[in-house]
């Protein structure tokens, strides 16, 4: 693996006496395609929240490009280049699609014209026809695309896609995957959290599986599919 862009060392998160995550060690290489799977409540979303800074971990540290970012607020991490999309799309309602992209551009210090950058990102996800529509008017697929576009527009180094394909049809899944592949080719590491197995398996170079807050298996798609612990989690026995 290349130099890790993101590195978790012993990260733990508790809610009261309940340990939701960890301790977890995980490295993500620059430009890697990493899939994260695991049943509901296995700690995947908690993990993302610890990486993006929505939660402060109770133990361990998060390193980004070699720098300890465990104590940075979420917006600072976003500006450094950690972007995410949300499981349930959270468009900035009351704004147009175009304005939605201006928010990260206003705060993330991007060189060049904001308008050009926003337009080109919207074109790359296929939302050009919707630029001046209010975000409330979008379809489910378009909301997912907007979610991705808003995450991409600030030129991130890591993108975390949290169930970006849930509830979409097969054709729509292909469309979203194509966006993520294209993004990855430009050098962005993509962490895909997903329940849709065939999509994760197709997309990821490496897949890790979580259960009850712990990382229980790691390997290539085919290794993970065969892994006894993973099979036990998903199929019982």
């Amino acid at each position: 693996m290349t130099e890790p862009v993101l590195s978790l060392k012993g990260v733990e998160k508790r809610f009261g006496s309940f340990r939701a995550l960890g301790p977890v060690d995980l490295d993500v290489g620059a430009g890697e395609r990493l899939g994260i799977i695991g049943p509901n409540g296995s700690g995947k979303t908690t993990l993302i929240n610890c990486i993006t800074g929505v939660y402060r971990p109770d133990g361990g540290s998060v390193f980004f490009e070699g720098r300890d970012i465990s104590h940075l607020q979420a917006h600072k991490r976003a500006r450094m280049g950690i972007a995410r999309s949300f499981q349930i799309p959270r468009p900035f309602t009351g704004m147009t699609v175009f304005e939605n992209l201006l928010v990260p551009l206003d705060y993330c210090h991007i060189e060049g014209s904001k308008h050009d950058r926003a337009s080109s990102v919207l074109a790359s996800v296929g939302l050009s026809a919707r630029v001046s529509d209010p975000s409330e008017k979008l379809t489910q697929l378009e909301l997912r695309k907007l979610e991705l576009a808003r995450a991409l527009v600030g030129n991130p180094k890591v993108l975390i896609a949290d169930e970006a394909m849930a509830g979409l049809s097969e054709e729509e899944i292909d469309e979203v995957l194509a966006i993520l592949f294209a993004l990855n080719r430009s050098g962005v590491a993509v962490i895909m959290i997903e329940h849709i197995m065939h999509a994760v398996m197709r997309f990821s170079e490496r897949v890790v599986c979580f259960e009850t807050g712990r990382l229980i298996a790691s390997g290539t798609s085919s290794e993970i599919a065969e892994h006894p612990l993973v099979q036990k989690v998903y199929f019982g026995e």
Binding site: A74, A83, R90, F92, G94, V103, Y107
Partner: peptide, 13 residues
């Protein structure tokens, strides 16, 4: 106003 978490994760302090 729309989503505090999404704003924060878009770099808004």
């Amino acid at each position: 106003r729309a989503s505090e978490d999404a704003a924060e994760c878009s770099g808004v302090p």
